[in-house]
Structures are given as C-alpha cells and as structure tokens.
Nucleic acid binder design. Sequence first.
DNA 1: ACTTATAGACCGACAGACTGTCGGTCGTGA
DNA 2: TCACGACCGACAGTCTGTCGGTCTATAAGT
Lengths: 207, 207
Amino acid sequence: MRVVKEAAERRNEILDTAEKLFITKGYDKTSTNDILDRVGIARGTLYYHFKSKEEILNAMIERINGALITKAKTIASDTSIPVIDRIVMTIAALNVDTDIGHEIIDEVHKPQNALMHQKMQENLVAGIVPVLTDLVCEGEKQGLFSIRYPAETIEMLVLYACTAFDDRYETDGAAKEKRIKVFLYNTEKLLGAEEGSLQKAMINLFR
Amino acid sequence: MRVVKEAAERRNEILDTAEKLFITKGYDKTSTNDILDRVGIARGTLYYHFKSKEEILNAMIERINGALITKAKTIASDTSIPVIDRIVMTIAALNVDTDIGHEIIDEVHKPQNALMHQKMQENLVAGIVPVLTDLVCEGEKQGLFSIRYPAETIEMLVLYACTAFDDRYETDGAAKEKRIKVFLYNTEKLLGAEEGSLQKAMINLFR
DNA sequence: ACTTATAGACCGACAGACTGTCGGTCGTGA
DNA sequence: TCACGACCGACAGTCTGTCGGTCTATAAGT
C-alpha cells in the first residue's frame, strides 16, 4: 500500500535505516534493496530522494559529523572551563563511544568500509582542526603552550589520532594504552606544554 | 585460440594489466572483464589464478610495496652513509615518483580508490616503521637524537606523512611546502634532533 | 618411436545480484 | 477538478564468481 510523506521525513527515514545497515553490515555489503525493503518503500522512491547510493553515504556522514562538530564547538566556546580541560573535552566529544555507540568505531574501520572511513575522517579533520587550533592559541596566550606553527601541528596530531586509534591496527589493550601514553607525551612536546600537564588534565577529568 | 603458460607467468601478466587499469581507472571502475579482455584470457582463467577481484588488488599491492621496502632496506643498511642521510634517503625511496611514476601518487588517492589507498598505506607503514626505528636508534647512539619512545614516535610520523602528503588535500603548492617545512621542524622536535639538522641533510642531498 | 595417462592450464555459458532508469499512478491541497 | 509532488515496480544493463568440461604438455609404459 502507498503511504505518502513529506520529502524531508522520508529522507530522514532512509538515512536512519541506511546508517544502521552501513554500520552493522558495511557499506559495500549493504544493497539498496536492503535499505528500501527495511524502510518499506519502492526502488523508485529511494532514487527519487537520493540520486545514488553514494549520495546516501555522504548525507549520512554529514549528519553524523555535523552533530559531532557542533558538540565539540559548544564545549570549545565555554570560557568558564580552563583551556586545557576544554581541549581534552573537545577531543573526548569526538570519541563516538559516547552517544552513537561503540558500533561505529568498531565497524567503520573494517577494510570493507574504506570509503566510508576515509570520508568520515576527512570531513571530521577539516571540521575539528580550526576549533582546536583556536583553543591552543588561547592556551598559548595564557602561557600554557609554546608553539610556532599551531595550525599545521594540530592537523598533524589530529590526523594521526584519527588513523592510529582505529581498532584496525591491534586489539591488544596494552599496546594501545602505551600508544595513547606516547601520543600524549609527544603532544605535550609539540605544543611546548609542561611534561605531564595534558596527562594530568585527562586523568583529572575522567578519573 | 588457446595459449598455455606457466602459472607464475600468467599471474604476472594479470597483475601487470590490473596494475595499469587500477591506477588509471580506479579499482571500483575497473571490471574483471576489462582485465581479462586486455590480457586475452577467458573469465575462468582469471578465477583459476585468483580467487577474487580483491585478491588481485592485494597481490598487486604486495608486489609494489615489497619492491619499495626492499629498496628502503638496502639503503638503510648501507653503513658507509651517515645515519641522518640514510634516514632521508630511506624516506625518499618511498616517494613513488622515482620509478613507478607519478600516476600512482596522483591517482591512488582519489576518493573512489579508498580501499586501495588504505591497504597500500597500512602495508607500507608496517614495513617501513621497523626500518626507520632501527636507523633512529642508531642515530641516538651517535648522539644525534634523544628520544624516549622511538617505535611509537616513528609510527606517528610515518602515519601522518602517508596521510598528509596525499594530493587529495590540496594542490596549492605553497601550502604544501609549508606543511613539509613544519613537518620537518616537528620531526626534529620529536626526535630530539638539533633544529635544522634534518632540513640541512635534506637540502644537502637533493639540492 | 608411438600410444596412453595425467595433471595443470584454460574456456565460456550461466546463475545470481546489484544499481540506476523511466513511464506511469496515486493523494492531497488549492 | 486540477496540478504537482511523492511514489511505484518492471526492466535494462552490468558485474562478480562458478562449474563442468576441454585442451596440451609432459611423463610413463610398451
């Protein structure tokens, strides 16, 4: 039977379903049939709202990243919190565990989802680098950091973090923990922060 | 008509052809028909030598990266060259421009080739990090560097370099040059090298 | 030297699945 | 009642991977 809805609503229904499927089954392994069966629409309807399967992926990524970046910006602009805490919190806000669930971080990084992964990363890095750069510059004015090329350096750190902290490299908890520790140590070095200052802020916030 | 060849030879013919096509057209847009038409074999023959299209991609990447890593190792083990020069040369050996041609670096990083890109990067990083780590440790013994966590730090630098120096981010020459400069500056900082020492070695070698 | 056997390389028709298209239909608000 | 936006589903075209069977080079037996 035929159910008519407003375009925006249908679009979101499709995106909701696609998101679940892309994340649980992978982008390549999800067929457009899977999506339209689940939404309960016909083939033509799907292609009435999106011009291709890839466009669905793009829209989905923009929705997810848009929300994440908005959240990060909100935290970053709360001047009532010390800069160093805000930096840690901003980064934590991107750790998708919080609200979208572990599934994403676990599933997105499988080899099959390379395209999805690359797009999410590119989009997220572009959005978050300026926010963090501003924060670091603020911290430098307060004498917390000493850094010559903030933008490029932040980009370097963020890009590395995005790639390295994907689970695809190892599941060994110890190696991962060490990697995080070294990452913080190196970050302090690059930002010209006092040794242990970031680590302290982190432990302080998450205990 | 039917031409019989040794398995190894056919395999290489297929890989040669696939390499050209994957690089010029992209992995997704290259069909197995494209490959087998060009090689001049039947469908069944292709699947006699490779069990899937993706396995062709994997074999191709291993071939390319194997050659690159062998070359890098050769340079790295030549103790007649000063360590710092060897480091620069080892990295330079990975810059595919040299023998496989610009095409790869130009084409591999298009969004369509995400899978290929990811696999090449992962494979290359895993191969090159130990080589560079050894070199850096050698340099530390000579008092050139001062570094607490060599392996993780090298990994960080290599991973970043792989991601950042893809052309996908910008074609603006000036921005790219600055990025390289900052990368060298930060590398010196992380390795605990004298400021400008890496840059000097680089300019020295390539003038 | 001449048949016969065998294993490895090769063939191409086919099944099954998938994406995107298109002409046409239905519902709803003006 | 009219028009437009939402919706439908059959269909074309393409793609990957399979399978039963065929060819050929080499080794063995006579």
